[in-house]
Design a protein around this nucleic acid. Structure first.
Length: 1190
RNA sequence: GGGCGUAUAGCUCAGUUGGUUAGAGCGCGUCGCUGAUAACGACGAGGUCCCAGAUUCGAGUUCUGGUACGCCCA
């Protein structure tokens, strides 16, 4: 009894903590788990152990697995034993697989989309680690930028720049710094709960001083190479708030509004009485007009006569009628003119202010001639005839495309003699002195007076209201945004366009179309990177300006700054720190402290150098991550050199213009072929040049995640489940498996609770059930894997061979060799797919294997496990095959479902105690054993399964249920090559189909009709255009004759209109079709024909089987244990039932563990009625559990 | 307005270099199994592969043009 008590304890802990070894830190002991978890299954004391068997150390799990609970235990185990660190340590000397973490911002809550990226980011490093690679995973956090400022602003109840300044930049920045970590806890919990192994403790942080200084170094490098410059950028400007808005913010604020739409006349200087018709929806921009644009080729222009005013108007021919209709009068065409003839013509601007102020100057062209700087017709290919007049008003100050026109114009002139930007509006959105008559008027209030003024001057042809979408400030919804020019710093990325394209061409993109599609196109249309931001919380642009001469220099790190002559202003930081010692030191390189630091100008005696005010685009921060995460070059040069470039990164599609670009651009500029190999700040350290691609070699671009309804996920619509809810209900493995196996990662994924839930029965539970099956019978039979005395620490197949009961795979039965072949083939496929970063097809292969294991190997092997002789070699083979397969599958799935695999590993290896690796994640990934792969066997088994399947189809068709035995099936095949093999497996087919005999044949004219079809793939190249004729000839000929001819001569000759053609047996395919009148079913390669004659004898056997089923059901009903004995009685008045019981009573008793099977009734037992009578079942008095149990 | 992508069974998605019978899972239906049982198996129904044209002996697959949806940019 002692023994049984011990066993009971072990058993209880099986699904819980049995794998917490004494050597491990955690005191996982039996008592605590007993208290913690209740067990619903009856105790094992009711099981009688077979006398001959040893006690198996394997334990069956109790009840159904609760994956979330198991996962939490695994998490604790990992945590307590530092498994992740161990997995890295084991590979310290391995080859390198470099992974970069694209930094998320911890300033917002993590959502399901992050689960996807983090799952994908996890699976490949795990896989590579198991493959023996050293794969470090440094986490990172993106901490700068406007979103952070906005969050803080909300908290403070302020939003405009002025308000922030009034509040104080210093306290504001301090709040930003602490706000960055607001959701840190949630992020860490999610990361850990999902099983994403990453070094959170070592994370790089973009606001850290070392990080900022790396960024400074790179900017200094660019500055010194002349790649940083100042220019104008047209931005969406919130005039009231005094700030520019990012594209994303602008996108949020579009509203449909009605604006005045005016058709304005621009009289041509050299054609009195003739005017251009120019269209605009922003009349307030007209005082700043500089040009009128026409399309140089695609648009034809007409001169029409406005008979009401007598004027001649120039406009696009295609729009004459439209405008005539608006004016409600005819506009007869005088002549058509080419755009060519219009270009260069001068006109009178709509308002004279700038004309007078500038004196309508002339400038010197690059070619040596001269030309007027302003108020000419110019060419622009964005001009269309979709709306307006086909001639577009150009106010470069208020439109990005207009601005580009100005840039193009400036390029025509010699330096310094080109047109200036004309702008009559101040940053506050009000007119300046440049348009004196409306000085101080908010531009949007000026539309009406301006229109009125135009009308007074006879310049207004027509005015109407125009409905369109226009952006408003998302924080102050009444404020319309305007486009406005701001001074900005740019990086001259356009100079590196070709290099970036060359770099891109070498990157392994997944999916491939990103390369030449979205990303390639983006690079091809590269514009200089607008780097600066007029904000507060960001990496300060490290450029100091001489207050006297305006000359500048860049600074590469804080110490470099301090080493400058006569440094002043550092006391601002010192004072702040003294007042509040809690302040993190990293703030000293941020505004406002850094702004206070000045030094003596080297350019002018007595002058001071002062930093420019801007911070930089936080995309630059993240793009600098390959070197900045290490603080390179100021420190850790070896780490950088070691970890560059990355082998693998992955983010969602929205990073195309974000992190993917910023990384590639920065890396190409700093480390590309044409970079001049600058000397890094660290002594003698030379910045390396790298062959493309860098900084990442491969990138999986993930699709966007959509909500349950296929729309964008939105908290408001509640169209998705929170990750934590999923984890609690189904577990992280279910979610991961959903991501990896349900679709290619780049498709837009619908995040569906049901689909995640489905992972459980489809995969997790199915695998679990195989494991459960093994342990149930291992326990009963005493299967003991530790008899493999030479087993190594990961129980590799070869080392298990040391067990006495272990036979070489080649000696085992077909089904064993088959599943081992499938296993090894799958290992080969999964490895090949994962090396190609193709998780989807790797998962498909795994699914197929687990299906084969569960639905064919286990199913077909059940009676081997149930065999009475516990020591039979076949039974041993079955155990070893299943045990070994499960071990290997566990390793195979470990990167995908790290929790389940860990639990399985723990349970499967528990008998070995500490001689085996404590975690599956420390194991080597399985390697295919080539000589166990048997494609021929695989193919044959496939055929066998098809035969079984067809047999069942035929039965269903003939309405002959499987329990009713039949005398014979005949299997007709297209060729005889596998008949011998199939004959050896008669038993299997007989059992699957419940028939007495199986016959195979290739000649069965009586049952089937042969048809011969061409093998198009082969014949296509051979006979080309004659294919239709071949097809027709084969279809018309008699298949059976053709086949005979083929078997006789080895070829068939067809007479065709174009000559005769010889076909060999490879050129054709033979197909079978069952003839009418047989209980037959046809598959692709076989026809299965049933003998439907049911003799009395067969019928009685069927009755016996039906009874067995009824009794088995009842066993369960009365809650019998596995090995309980029962008594059975059947009451019937049907003679053939009585006879059936007489004939098959032993079999019935045998299969149902009945001591007696009698005719009649049993007292005090409720019978079950069935078609044969009443069946009585009760637990036998000889049953061990009957004595007062339960 | 431009770029990119997607469109295949009721749903979610695969489909390699063109090869003539387009697959999977789920769902549905029918049947079966019943000591892996909060499982399992078999079979079945269900598809003008978005539309139109082109190339080809042959197109879900290549090309052109459209339509719808999504994303990015303007």
């Amino acid at each position: 009894m002692n023994r049984q008590n011990t066993r009971k304890s072990l058993f209880l802990t099986t699904t819980n903590r049995c794998w917490c070894r004494p050597t491990l830190k955690r005191p996982g002991n039996v008592q605590s788990s007993q208290q913690k978890f209740s067990i619903s299954t009856p105790p094992l004391s009711s099981i009688i152990l077979p006398m001959s068997a040893s006690v198996s150390p394997l334990r069956a799990p109790t009840g159904s697995p609760q994956f979330p609970k198991l996962e939490k235990e695994v998490l604790e185990f990992w945590e307590d034993n530092g498994i992740y660190q161990q997995s890295l340590d084991r590979r310290a000397d391995g080859p390198q697989f470099v992974f970069y973490e694209g930094p998320p911002t911890a300033n917002g809550m993590p959502h399901p989309g992050h689960c996807l990226t983090r799952s994908i980011k996890d699976v490949f490093p795990r896989y590579k680690t198991m493959q023996g690679f050293r794969c470090e995973r440094k986490a990172g956090w993106d901490t700068h930028g406007l979103p952070v400022e906005v969050e803080v602003g909300k908290e403070l109840g302020i939003h405009s720049k002025e308000e922030i300044e009034a509040y104080g930049i210093e306290p504001f920045i301090q709040k930003c710094q602490s706000s960055v970590w607001r959701y840190m806890q949630q992020w860490q919990t999610l990361t850990q709960r999902l099983g994403f192994w990453v070094d959170l403790d070592e994370a790089y942080v973009t606001y850290h001083q070392s990080y900022v200084e790396s960024v400074w170094w790179s900017l200094k490098t660019l500055f010194d190479r002349g790649l940083l410059y100042q220019g104008h950028k047209i931005v969406w400007w919130w005039a009231q708030g005094g700030t520019a808005l990012s594209a994303g913010e602008v996108g949020q604020g579009y509203r449909e509004v009605a604006d005045p739409s005016v058709y304005v006349l621009f009289p041509l200087v050299d054609h009195p009485g003739r005017s251009l018709v120019v269209w605009t929806t922003t009349p307030w921009t007209l005082p700043s007009n500089m040009y009128a644009a026409v399309h140089p080729t695609a648009v034809e222009y007409s001169v029409v006569k406005d008979e009401e005013t007598g004027q001649e108007l120039v406009l696009a021919s295609a729009l004459v009628e439209t405008i005539a209709a608006k004016l409600k009068r005819e506009l007869p065409v005088v002549e058509t003119v080419s755009a060519e003839s219009l270009i260069g013509q001068r006109y009178e601007p709509p308002f004279p202010d700038f004309h007078q102020a500038t004196g309508d100057p002339v400038g010197k062209l690059v070619g040596g001639e001269t030309q007027s700087k302003y108020w000419r017709v110019v060419a622009a290919d964005f001009v269309t005839t979709e709306s307006g007049s086909g001639i577009v008003h150009q106010a470069p100050a208020f439109g990005e495309v207009d601005y580009d026109v100005l840039i193009d114009q400036q390029k025509l002139f010699v330096d310094g003699d080109g047109p200036e930007l004309l702008c009559a509006v101040g940053p506050d959105g009000k007119f300046t002195d440049a348009f004196a008559e409306m000085k101080g008027v908010w531009v949007k209030d000026a539309d009406k007076p301006i229109s009125r003024k135009l009308k007074e001057n006879g310049r207004l042809l027509f005015l109407e209201q125009y409905l369109h979408d226009y952006p408003f400030c998302w924080r102050a919804s009444e404020d319309p945004l305007i486009q406005y020019p701001r001074e900005s710093w740019f990086v001259r990325t356009t100079e590196f366009k070709d290099e970036m394209l060359a770099n891109n061409a070498k990157i392994g993109w997944q999916p491939g179309h990103i390369q030449d599609g979205r990303f390639g196109n983006f690079l091809a249309s590269n514009v200089d990177w607008a780097l600066s931001r007029e904000r507060f919380w960001g990496t300060p642009l490290p450029i100091w300006v001489c207050q006297e001469t305006g000359q500048m220099e860049a600074i590469g790190c804080y110490d470099e700054l301090l080493a400058k002559p006569d440094v002043q202003g550092t006391e601002v930081w010192a004072k702040a720190k003294a007042e509040n010692p809690e302040l993190v030191d990293d703030l000293r390189v941020h505004k406002p402290y850094i702004d206070a630091v000045t030094y003596a100008s080297p350019f002018s005696d007595g002058a001071r150098m002062q930093r420019v005010t801007e911070v930089i685009d936080c995309w630059y921060d993240s793009g600098a991550m390959p070197f900045a995460q290490w603080g390179y070059p100021h420190q850790n040069a070896d780490r950088f050199l070691d970890q560059f470039p990355a082998d693998f990164i992955s983010e969602a599609l929205d990073q195309t213009r974000g992190w993917f670009y910023s990384q590639l651009a920065i890396s190409t500029m700093l480390f590309g072929k044409d970079s001049p190999n600058p000397i890094a700040a660290k002594d003698g350290l030379e910045t390396p040049k790298y062959d493309y691609p860098h900084p990442f070699r491969n990138c999986i671009v993930l699709g966007l995640m959509l909500g349950e309804d296929g729309k964008k996920m939105s908290k408001k619509d509640k169209n998705f489940r929170e990750p934590n809810e999923i984890f609690d209900k189904y577990g992280a493995d279910a979610l991961r498996w959903f991501f990896f196996s349900k679709q290619t990662p780049w498709t837009a994924i619908q995040y569906k609770e049901q689909a995640i839930k489905d992972s459980i029965p489809e995969f997790l539970l199915r695998l679990w059930n195989v494991f459960s099956f093994l342990t149930i019978y291992a326990e009963i039979d005493g299967f003991d894997p530790t008899t493999a005395t030479a087993a190594d620490d990961q129980l590799s197949p070869s080392s298990l061979a040391s067990a006495p009961g272990y036979r070489d795979a080649s000696e085992r039965s077909e089904i064993d060799r088959w599943i081992l072949s499938e296993l090894n083939q799958t290992i080969a496929t999964v490895t090949e797919r994962m090396d190609a970063l193709d998780n989807y097809n790797a998962c498909r292969a795994i699914t197929g294997l687990v299906d084969g294991l569960s639905n064919w190997f286990v199913r077909r092997s059940r009676d081997r496990f149930w065999a009475k002789d516990t020591d039979s070699q076949d039974k041993n083979d079955a155990y070893w095959t299943l045990y070994e397969s499960l071990l290997e599958v566990t390793k195979l799935v470990a990167p995908f479902v790290p929790f389940l695999s860990e639990t399985l590993w723990k349970n499967l290896t528990s008998p070995f105690s500490e001689s085996v690796l404590g975690s599956v994640h420390l194991c080597d990934y399985p390697k295919p054993i080539q000589d166990r792969i048997d494609p021929e066997l695989s193919e044959s088994m496939h055929l066998l399964r098809e035969i079984a399947s067809m047999g069942r189809a035929a039965r269903a068709e003939a309405k002959l249920k499987v329990r009713l035995p039949l005398s014979q099936v005949e299997v007709v095949l297209t060729d005889d090559s596998r008949i011998d093999w199939l004959k050896q497996h008669d038993d299997l087919v007989k059992e699957e189909l419940n028939v007495k005999t199986v016959d195979y044949t290739t000649e069965a004219d009586k049952y089937v009709q042969y048809t011969v079809v061409p093998n198009f793939k082969r014949l296509g190249p051979k006979v080309g255009k004659q294919i239709p004729a071949v097809k027709k000839a084969l279809a018309e000929a008699d298949g059976n004759d053709l086949l005979q001819a083929m078997q006789r001569d080895g070829k068939v000759t067809l007479e065709l209109p174009g000559g005769s053609v010889d076909l060999d047996d490879q050129d054709i395919e033979v197909r079978l079709q069952a003839r009418e009148g047989w209980a037959a079913a046809q598959g692709s390669r076989c026809v299965v024909v049933l003998n439907t004659e049911v003799t009395d004898e067969l019928r009685r056997e069927g009755i016996a089987k039906d009874l067995i089923r009824t009794i088995q059901n009842q066993r369960k009903e009365i809650q019998c244990e596995y090995l309980d004995r029962i008594e059975v009685a059947v009451e019937t008045d049907m003679d053939e039932v009585i006879l059936a019981i007489k004939e098959h009573g032993d079999q019935i008793a045998n299969e149902t563990l009945a001591d007696t099977v009698t005719l009649g009734t049993l007292p005090d037992v409720d019978p079950i009625e069935n078609e044969y009578g009443r069946v009585f079942v009760r637990r036998s008095s000889s049953s061990p559990a009957s004595g007062g149990e339960s």
